[in-house]
Design a protein around this nucleic acid. Structure first.
Lengths: 338, 338
DNA sequence: GTAGGGGCTGGGAGCGTTCCCAGATACCAC
DNA sequence: GTGGTATCTGGGAACGCTCCCAGCCCCTAC
């Protein structure tokens, strides 16, 4: 059934233009006509051809999303990507857009993907998740003038790019302050990788909490980790030796490593050492880990909201959004959950 | 820079048609002309407008993918969705297509998504992952005549739909036969939910292995589970009582439940009871579970290959593909890994 | 009565491609 | 020389929309 707007017009006894006006909810159509046209559209199950529409409006009503390879398949935190994407997808659908997804393959083939993305002009804007380092795609898109939002703060051009990220500093400050509030005074930190804003900001938050409490930052209480369980384990061993009575692990995975080390050495948590993590992975509820929850789904939704606002001209970039985190009190910090 | 094919034609001193022929790699263009046009295209960084192309060719070079809500966020097996999607994405990009992704939200709003999908004609075909029950979207698409492939065998219209799934029967048969080969004679099964082809087929494979070995199927060795850890635990308790010396758990999650039960009751695995699971979740390597590995990434790639072949007319549907599984021998079966 | 303006409608033009057909040229066989 | 065929090229038409402009009608104000 080769249905086009002209067929509908004929069936309704009106012109192409009128049907178009009804379709797009424009004014200057009499109520009677509008109703009649709507009825025909409904009856025929007609939907306008999006390609034709895109050709003239220069808008496709869809957005592109790029997920780097390591994010999608990372073993440690398999929840991250689906949950984020769910938030993205929900909001995209809600606001009447479709989502084009690219997932990075091997790094060597990322170039191909980048070219595909920039050549495919079937999208009105682009969301890039966790662009690490000096991502060439981000640079490209930035230059092309296409509306662009990244999830997490990009390493380069951060002031010229719109992004959505966590308030990492405040989250880490809260975690550390909570440990101090439990009476701990020798609070150590196992940082994430420090080539990365998340890692750096969480360290800043830690230091801030100490400063707020009038405690000095002791360099031997700062252990540089790498987000993974082994560095959590090693960091804990080191901090135990140096007499720490509390540890803020910059993510939950490393916090699990801390638990490993404590079990091995025979230290009791939270009695001997209190512990707070970061991320609120599902698995941490099982082990009673006190942690900082990040609103993953909202992060995706907020990023899409920003991108669509940029596309629709409701917002002007660059714009940065820092989402609040939440302290989730369980057993490892030694506080009574209230 | 409003670049269109006409601009390129003018710059190269040829006609629109010739540029189009070069762009599409058609014959009947002299080598000299082709080279000259290519050079201009390269220099100007020109790429044809996909909307205009789609308008006339009725092809968008993109495919839609629908992931139901519960699959994306399912707690038990968070690897499933990203890994499958990675396979889908890889192959899609490789073959020069883009991917439109929809993720189911709450079931109540699935209707909205379905309408969005069927209205959005910006795709040449549709991949539906794990359509459970009598999925209305599948029925819709089937009726619309749009090329359609599902991952996993659909519950309804299975003979009219192209799909890619595991060879569940053979996988389960292999698992069970392996237990028998270890000298076990009282082999029980904890099935998955039996409203579902995966669950049913794995039971069939189990029975087949018994028959092959000349062993009777005893109904009290068949425990109907529900894919989750608690039913694995309960099933194991029941089978232990009935004297089973081996258990085939229809998925790894339930196998973990079996380990829970064994630890509680004080049975040694594999000494007292041998155990084989199904899926090869990453976590199972840690606990030494012998299991059946399913090629998740290949599943996604195979589904896309089938879909694109259908779209491009290289294949004729409906077509069913059963992917082979692989026995991964670890500790819980009692065999020596070789 | 006439001018002016707002509500409503219709149709031409154009978006950037591909497809089809016509035409030009060159070559070959008879 | 002629007819036939293969190679190469150009331009009209069409894909299905939106946008713009013109025109109609009716109401109101002067």
């Amino acid at each position: 059934m080769p249905q086009n707007i002209e067929d509908i017009a004929k069936a309704a006894g009106v012109s192409r233009s009128t049907v178009s006006r009804v379709l797009n909810g424009e004014q200057y159509v009499s109520a009677a006509t509008r109703e009649r046209v709507m009825a025909i559209i409904e009856r025929e199950g007609y939907t306008p051809n999006p390609a034709a529409r895109a050709l003239v409006t220069q808008r496709t009503q869809s957005v592109g999303v790029m997920i780097p390879h390591d994010l999608a398949t990372v073993f440690d935190n398999p929840w991250y990507f689906p949950t984020l994407l769910q938030g993205v997808s929900d909001r995209t659908t809600q606001r009447g857009y479709a989502m084009l997804l690219w997932m990075g393959r091997s790094e060597t083939e990322e170039d191909l993907i980048y070219r595909r993305i920039t050549n495919n002009r079937l999208m009105d804007g682009m969301l890039v998740a966790s662009a690490t380092g000096d991502n060439p795609l981000v640079a490209h898109l930035l230059e092309s003038g296409m509306p662009l939002v990244t999830v997490e703060r990009p390493a380069a051009h951060a002031d010229r790019i719109s992004y959505v990220t966590l308030d990492n500093i405040e989250g880490a400050r809260t975690a550390t302050a909570h440990l101090i509030a439990q009476g701990r005074r020798r609070v150590g930190i196992i940082t994430g990788a420090l080539d990365n804003m998340d890692g750096l900001d969480r360290l800043v938050g830690y230091k801030k909490a100490l400063a707020d409490a009038g405690l000095p930052v002791q360099s031997d209480y700062v252990y540089t980790g790498n987000w993974d369980r082994p560095t959590g384990y090693l960091g804990a061993k080191a901090l135990f030796e140096r007499g720490a009575d509390a540890i803020f692990a910059s993510n939950d995975i490393m916090a699990l490593g801390v638990l490993d080390a404590a079990a091995e050495v025979g230290l009791r948590i939270p009695h001997d050492v209190a512990l707070v993590g970061f991320d609120d992975l599902p698995v941490t509820a099982e082990v009673g880990l006190t942690t900082i929850r990040q609103p993953l789904r909202q992060k995706g939704a907020a990023a899409i909201d920003l991108l669509l606002d940029l596309i629709e001209g409701r917002a002007r970039g660059p714009q940065q959004i820092f989402l609040p985190t939440q302290l989730v009190i369980r057993q490892t910090c030694g506080a009574q959950p209230n």
